[in-house]
């Protein structure tokens, strides 16, 4: 094994010269020439405006999308060489509004991946209880309810529990708290931040909210029009002098720029 391959295995995720464009139109790439490594257990925030390519980058990790150029490595293997179903079952995924199945109870929603993986029912039930407690929901009260009977914040907690169900080492989160009211959002951000420290997963977190990025990220990757323009730890990020970084940090001074 050469040095280059060995180095790869230290990272949970690696983007190597990744470009992505739709319908074979290379002139208008959504993501362009991104190289980036994410260490095991790290929480990396992808920050950027709408349309900057952050969600696309996230979907390239679990092979919802395939790079047009370059390669994405997950646990040292190019995603194009992985079975997409197997790959995805090993990666938790949380989206805005949680994307819970309305015809499944909360317990059935959380049990989705374990059920697909054919765990026995005793083990599934125990896991569901454990996860509900982890996200501060009482199993006795919530297991049998349907998503529509829950508040937005509660649904988002269930979304996190569902993503963690099969104990995936990697968690992808696409603006998970974006649709919540500011108070609930702050509450969940605090809890989630404590939870991630405890669980030690590799997390890739997409947001357009600079405050959320500073609070949750160990590193922040700033995207602009598909390019990676800055990559730094929160403390250093604030002192970068790129124009796009300053456009985001400027939001911190005004109270209205964030709550969108």
């Amino acid at each position: 094994m050469n040095a280059k391959t060995a180095a790869r295995l230290d990272f949970a995720i690696e983007f190597r010269g990744v470009t992505y464009y739709i319908n074979d139109i290379p002139a208008r790439p959504i993501v362009s020439g991104v190289s980036l490594t994410i260490s095991r257990g790290e929480t990396l925030v992808l920050l950027g405006r709408s349309g900057s390519g952050k969600t696309t980058l996230l979907k390239l990790i679990n092979r919802m999308l395939v790079p047009s150029e370059g390669q994405v490595f997950v646990e040292g293997r190019p995603t194009t060489e992985c079975n997409p179903i197997r790959l995805r079952r090993g990666i938790g995924y949380v989206i805005q509004e949680a994307g819970l199945f309305p015809h499944f109870t909360i317990a059935e929603n959380i049990a989705l991946v374990p059920t697909l993986e054919k765990w026995d029912s005793v083990r599934i039930a125990a896991r569901v209880d454990e996860l509900l407690r982890l996200v501060s929901l009482d199993p006795a009260e919530f297991s049998t309810r349907y998503p529509r009977e829950l508040s937005g914040g509660q649904r988002q907690r269930v979304g996190v529990a569902r993503a963690l169900a099969a104990d995936p080492p990697i968690l992808l989160m696409d603006e998970p708290f974006g649709a919540l009211d500011p108070v609930t959002r702050a509450e969940l951000q605090r809890e989630f931040s404590a939870l991630t420290r405890r669980l030690g997963r590799t997390i890739v977190f997409v947001t357009h909210d600079i405050r959320e990025a500073l609070l949750l990220g160990q590193r922040i990757a700033l995207l602009q029009a598909g390019h990676l323009v800055a990559l730094a730890a929160p403390d250093d990020f604030l002192h970068l002098d790129q124009r796009e970084v300053q456009a985001f940090t400027a939001c911190l001074d005004s109270s209205d720029g964030v709550a969108s």
Partner: peptide, 9 residues
């Protein structure tokens, strides 16, 4: 919902 379903494998 479909996106979540696909992403869950």
């Amino acid at each position: 919902i479909l996106e979540a379903a696909e992403a869950m494998g």
